[in-house]
C-alpha cells in the first residue's frame, strides 16, 4: 500500500476499492472510517450515521456481499474490497424488488434506517432467497428503526422474497 506523510508525520494511505461497481483510489488517514470515506469523500450520503457505535445499523453497507456497520470499519480495511451502498441497489433507474416492496408495504417513515435495512435484507435474500419470518427478524435485528415497529419492514422483506423465483 502506498503511503505518504504530512508535515506532522501523520501517514496517509492510498487504497483501492470498488464502490457500486466504480473503482476509486482515495488517499486516507489510518483512522478514517469507511462511513466517512463514503459520505465525505465520495459524496454517497445515502449511508447514514446514527450512533457511530455499531448500535443502530443506519450505516450498513455490503462489503464483499456481507452487511457491515461502516462506522465500525476502517477505510483501510476496505482496501481491495467491493462495497455496495444504497446508491448501488437500483440499477439504471430500475428499483430493486426490495426497494419496490418497501414502497408498496408502507415500510418507510422517516427513512433514516431505510438504506441500512434494505442492504441487510438484500444480504439475507442473496444467501437465503426464501427466509422465514424469524429469519427476517434476525437478519434486520442489527438495524434499529424508531418509526415503524418493524411490522411493515418485515412484511416488505417477506413479500420481496415471495416475488423471487
Amino acid at each position: 500500500m502506498q503511503t505518504i506523510s504530512d508535515k506532522q508525520g501523520v501517514k496517509r494511505y492510498l487504497i483501492n476499492l470498488t464502490v457500486n461497481g466504480d473503482e476509486y483510489s482515495p488517499v486516507i488517514k489510518g483512522n478514517t472510517l469507511l462511513v466517512n470515506l463514503l459520505r465525505d469523500e465520495l459524496d454517497l450520503t445515502g449511508t447514514k450515521k446514527g450512533c457511530e457505535l455499531g448500535d443502530c445499523g443506519s450505516c450498513t453497507v455490503l462489503m464483499d456481499g456481507k452487511p457491515v456497520d461502516s462506522c465500525l470499519v476502517l477505510a483501510l480495511e476496505a482496501d481491495g474490497c467491493e462495497i455496495i451502498t444504497i446508491e448501488g441497489v437500483a440499477q439504471h433507474g430500475e428499483l430493486d424488488r426490495l426497494q419496490r416492496s418497501f414502497i408498496d408495504n408502507a415500510a418507510i417513515q422517516c427513512g433514516y434506517c431505510t438504506p441500512g435495512m434494505i442492504l441487510s435484507a438484500k444480504a439475507l435474500l442473496t444467501r437465503n432467497p426464501h427466509p422465514t419470518e424469524p429469519e427476517v427478524r434476525a437478519a434486520i435485528s442489527g438495524n434499529l428503526c424508531r418509526c415503524t415497529g418493524y411490522v411493515n419492514i418485515v412484511k416488505a422483506v417477506l413479500d420481496a422474497a415471495e416475488a423471487t423465483e
Binding site: 459520505r39 459524496d43 454517497l44 450520503t45 445515502g46 449511508t47 447514514k48 450515521k49 451502498t85 444504497i86 446508491e87 441497489v89 437500483a90 428499483l95 426497494q99 418497501f102 414502497i103 408498496d104 408502507a106 418507510i108 427513512g111 433514516y112 431505510t114 438504506p115 434494505i118
Partner: peptide, 23 residues
C-alpha cells in the same frame, strides 16, 4: 386510499438529503 408516500422513492434510493448530508 393507501397511496404510496410521496417521498418513498427518494428514501429507498438514498437520494433523500437530511441536514447532515448537505455540503
Amino acid at each position: 386510499k393507501s397511496k404510496p408516500k410521496i417521498d418513498a422513492r427518494v428514501k429507498v434510493t438514498g437520494q433523500a438529503r437530511y441536514t447532515a448530508d448537505l455540503k
